[in-house]
Write a protein that binds this DNA or RNA. Structure first.
Length: 260
DNA sequence: ATGGCCATAGTGTATGGA
């Protein structure tokens, strides 16, 4: 089963890229972030035409998340939950559903804007609440194993940053953010990307400015965390840079994980 | 020199992203 996550930075603008990419890569489930669409504008019909069922949680202008599943291979998403029951949040950043026997949790972590700002405090509180909710899930065996995937807006280590000194302590790289990423792992998850040999300077986001992609001036902030119980079934994990090379790309590349 | 781009709402230019 091939599962992926992609911050598309407007599904309206990127729908063509998403459809082309799904067709080319035989993706069974796709977690989307920053759809930037209200639910009435979600392109469910076009996706259905392409063979994908969708569940989504949107709002005007900002945020917005969705989970797509390939009808022919894994069927429609079930047991859909929007948001975190432990954390009232008007921002649509979280949607979860069962697909192909796995619990997928699609997350768009807050950006945080600047260390010490109100948005930064919101980011940390949002992550703490996510952790608390995930910890409440029934014990393994009683429910589907979980894949937590999305745009975490955290570069976990210096090797995930193109210029670690320039980014030292900055938003996306600050120690409190990294500590929270590590705590999500310590709770019993594995960073699927780091289970495998990867090229040095592997990133999932590149700034639109300053020829960021051409210079590979990027960050690895999009992640797939699998429950430790799932790790033996993970066959591969990779970042696909191809869509970042297209005309009018998202600034993020998709991350694909293959699970038996 | 610390910005440069992109999307949205909406038709100016501000906000947010990372």
């Amino acid at each position: 089963m091939k599962i992926a996550t992609w911050n598309v930075n407007s599904l309206r603008v990127r729908l063509g890229h998403v459809l082309d990419w799904l067709a080319a890569n035989e993706i069974d489930a796709l977690a989307l972030q920053e759809t930037k669409l209200t639910n009435d504008k979600f392109p469910a019909a076009a996706l259905a035409e392409a063979g994908y069922d969708a569940v989504f949680a949107g709002q005007p202008t900002y945020n917005g998340v969705a989970i797509l599943s390939r009808r022919a291979t894994v069927g429609a998403p079930t047991a859909v939950l929007r948001g975190n029951p432990l954390y009232e949040d008007p921002q649509q950043r979280l949607i979860s559903a069962e697909v192909g026997g796995l619990r997928l949790v699609c997350a768009y972590f807050p950006n945080g804007q600047e260390v010490g700002s109100d948005k930064y405090e919101y980011k940390l509180a949002w992550i703490d609440a996510l952790r608390a909710w995930l910890a409440q899930r029934p014990a393994a065996g009683a429910a589907a194993a979980t894949v937590l995937l999305g745009d975490f807006n955290i570069a976990p280590e210096d090797r995930d940053v193109h210029d670690p000194e320039a980014w030292r302590g900055a938003i996306l790289c600050s120690e409190p953010e990294r500590e929270r990423f590590r705590s999500l792992l310590a709770d019993g998850r594995v960073d699927a990307f780091r289970m495998f040999e990867q090229a040095e300077r592997s990133y999932s986001w590149w700034d639109y400015r300053q020829l960021g992609f051409r210079r590979n001036a990027g960050l690895r902030i999009d992640h797939v965390l699998v429950d430790a119980s799932l790790a033996p079934r993970v066959r591969a994990c990779a970042i696909d840079r191809a869509p970042r090379k297209l005309e009018k790309p998202s600034d993020h590349a998709p991350v694909i994980v293959e699970i038996d």
